[in-house]
Amino acid sequence: MTRLNSAATAETQQSWASVLRITEVAAGLPSSEARRPATPAVVTLQMVLEKLQAGWRWVERKRSQQISAKRLRVAETISLGEKRTLSIVTVDGSQYLIGSSAGGVQLLTKLDDATPNNSRDERSQ
């Protein structure tokens, strides 16, 4: 399912990129063609392409806002077998160790702000 979503997203992005390239080419016509009177069809096409380009920019802006607005992230997960896992979850910059099994999910502890590499360096000094 994820592969299909990824493929569909990539295909959509390629399609929109093509539309944007066409819009840019249409906006930057050479001066010899720019002197020709524009037909209603060309004007309509340019307006549609400009609207599509503006719409794409809006979608990208919203998407980047959603990505940056996420407060909850799973930093790392390890399987313990038999539907049991340990996960490090980051919430607003704080990290928590979460255990999960078929019976439910449980907060095990809040982790220190120091990363494991920093604590190892401090112990060795």
Rank of each mutant, 00 (worst) to 15 (best):
L111G: 07
V25K: 01
T9N: 07
Q65Y: 11
R35L: 04
S101R: 15
E82A: 15
A10T: 06
G55I: 00
K110W: 02
L86H: 07
W56Q: 01
T9F: 15
R36K: 08
P30D: 12
R3P: 00
V43D: 02
T77N: 14
T109F: 10
Q53D: 13
A54E: 09
S100D: 12
V105S: 05
S6I: 00
S31N: 02
A17Y: 11
Q125A: 02
T90H: 04
A26S: 14
N117R: 13
T2F: 08
P37C: 01
V19F: 14
K62D: 00
Q46R: 09
V48C: 02
Q14L: 13
A54L: 06
S32Q: 08
D112C: 09
G93F: 06
R57P: 01
I98A: 13
Q106S: 13
A34E: 09
L45K: 05
S31F: 06
V91C: 13
G55T: 01
A114P: 02
L49E: 03
T115W: 02
M47I: 04
K62A: 05
S79T: 12
K83W: 12
T109P: 05
G103V: 12
G28H: 14
E50T: 02
Q66T: 04
G103R: 12
A69F: 10
S15V: 09
E50A: 00
T85E: 11
Q14I: 03
W56S: 04
L52N: 01
Q46V: 07
L45N: 05
L72P: 05
S119V: 06
V19Q: 15
I22C: 14
S101A: 14
W58T: 08
V43T: 05
R63S: 05
D113N: 10
T115V: 07
A7E: 15
K70H: 02
P116L: 10
A8H: 01
R71M: 05
K83I: 08
K51F: 00
T39W: 03
A8Q: 03
Q66E: 03
L80A: 13
W56I: 00
T90L: 06
Q66H: 00
E76I: 10
R36A: 05
L49T: 06
A41C: 07
T2N: 08
T109W: 12
G81C: 13
A7L: 15
P30M: 09
N5F: 11
W16Y: 12
A75C: 13
K83L: 10
L4I: 04
D92F: 10
Q65T: 00
Q13A: 11
V42H: 03
T77G: 13
T12V: 06
T39N: 06
R123W: 06
R61V: 07
S119W: 07
T2W: 00
V48K: 01
R84M: 11
Q13N: 04
E50F: 01
S18K: 09
S18Y: 12
S15N: 12
N5L: 11
S124N: 04
S31W: 05
V105N: 07
R35P: 09
R84I: 10
V105P: 12
T85I: 08
L97K: 14
T77K: 15
S94H: 14
D121T: 10
R36M: 08
